[in-house]
Structures are given as structure tokens and as C-alpha cells.
Amino acid sequence: MERILANVIYEDAPVGWYGDLDGYDRASRSAGRDLPTTAHTMVGTKRLKNVRSCVEQVLRDGVPGDLVETGVWRGGVCILMRAVLEAYGVRDRCVWVADSFEGVPVAHSGSHPLDQEMALHRINQVLSVPRAEVAENFSRYGLLDDQVRFLEGWFADTLPHAPAGPLAVVRLDGDLYESTTDALTHLYPRLSPGGFVIIDDYDIEPCRKAVEEYRDRHGIDEPVQDIDGHGVYWRRAEHG
């Protein structure tokens, strides 16, 4: 599944992200450093392996709760989460697919300064993937069922009242300061002890600052572990 989701099987060429690349490059795809034309995820195989490892660990340890990703693009990571549940015959957990399906919020004069500086909304034509397309991608793997729940809308609107929880794995891929803060504020309190937080965009300044400030405010001192120089994760302490 990891290899198929990242399309290292057919090696689709990137369309440009960190600069022009001369066709498919295995190292770039593994590290999630290109923008695939057809693959269902851009996070790369290293971060996919991290997702699988975290989900398998909470299943082994009996950590209660569902799985959620905020910011899903074409849905590849959530498809992998659902595939792990299927492989282990788990029927009492859901995968929550949280996205605006319109790209990222437009940074305006009232937005956090780092979000204004980044102005990621300028590439929403790349980041925006319709909900119907994401659902169809689940269907292609035979994994679209009632264990897949969609949360459509901006995080500030959907997450406060989302019926998700408790949670065992929370993966954040919202890039921006405000998107990351919204996700942590509304989802971290629902994370079970022993559950995992995965931050896809920790090397991006707005995201990293949001994580650091949230951890400082709430006295979170579990060590942040690097995945691939881009994403990081930590495990919530068993005592809370």
C-alpha cells in the first residue's frame, strides 16, 4: 500500500514543487520532496511508514480511539490508515478525513503574520482536491465504507464540534500557523494517553511555531522525534 499510494510502482513524474525535476527521482519521492502527477499522496514513503507504524502501535497496545488527518490532499494517508484497520480486521475504529477540499484559507490582514508571509493560498489550484475525488480514491482501493468519515470545511468551523473522539492517532497536515493551532486546540485534548501526534510540516516555520507555542502553553514535554527532516511526531504520555 505504501508503495502504491506514493506510486513508486509506475514512477509518475512530478509537476514541480521544490523546483523543476528531471523526471521521477526515487530519493525525492521517498522523502516527499516532489509533487506527483498521479500518486495519491505527496508525503513520501518515509512518512507513510511512520503513519503505519503509529497506527499499528496503538492497535497492539490497545490505545482507544479513532484516527484523523487534518489536510488530506488526494487522501493517500487516510487511505493507508483505513487499510491498516482493514488488514487487522478492526471494525470499531473510524478514519476521519478533515479538509476544506478547497485548499488552504486565504491569508488576509487579520491572519497570523507568518501565514500572511507564506501566502500559501496562491497555489490553491494545486492544493484543492474535491471531496468527491478523495472519496473515489478510497473506492479504488475498496476502502470507502462507514468507517471513513468526512469532515468538510475549514478546521476552525468543523473541528470544535466534530463527533470524533477519543482519538488514537492525530496527523496534522495543514501547513499554516492558524490551521495547525486550530487542529491542536480541538483535537489534542481528545487524544488518548499512549496516542500519537504526527506533524507533517514541522520544517515550515508557521507550522513549527504553532506546535512549539501550543506545547509550551500546555506543558507538553514528550520528546519530538524526527521522521525524515520534514515531519515529526511524539507519543502522548500514558499519564495524560
Results as ranks from 00 to 15, higher is better:
170 V>Y: 14
170 V>C: 14
173 D>Q: 05
173 D>F: 03
174 G>Q: 06
174 G>C: 15
174 G>Y: 01
178 E>M: 10
181 T>V: 07
183 A>H: 06
183 A>Q: 10
183 A>V: 08
186 H>A: 12
186 H>P: 00
187 L>Y: 08
187 L>M: 08
188 Y>L: 15
188 Y>S: 03
188 Y>C: 06
189 P>K: 03
189 P>V: 04
189 P>G: 13
190 R>H: 10
191 L>T: 02
192 S>E: 09
192 S>V: 09
194 G>M: 02
194 G>T: 07
197 V>P: 00
199 I>R: 06
200 D>F: 08
201 D>Y: 07
201 D>R: 11
202 Y>V: 05
204 I>C: 10
204 I>D: 00
206 P>C: 12
206 P>N: 11
206 P>T: 11
207 C>R: 03
208 R>W: 06
208 R>A: 15
209 K>D: 13
209 K>R: 14
211 V>N: 06
211 V>D: 05
211 V>Y: 00
214 Y>A: 04
214 Y>K: 11
215 R>N: 04
217 R>V: 00
218 H>V: 04
219 G>N: 12
219 G>D: 07
222 E>A: 11
222 E>V: 01
223 P>K: 09
223 P>E: 10
223 P>L: 03
223 P>Y: 05
227 I>S: 02
228 D>H: 00
229 G>Q: 06
230 H>I: 07
230 H>D: 01
230 H>T: 12
232 V>W: 04
233 Y>L: 04
235 R>K: 12
236 R>S: 09
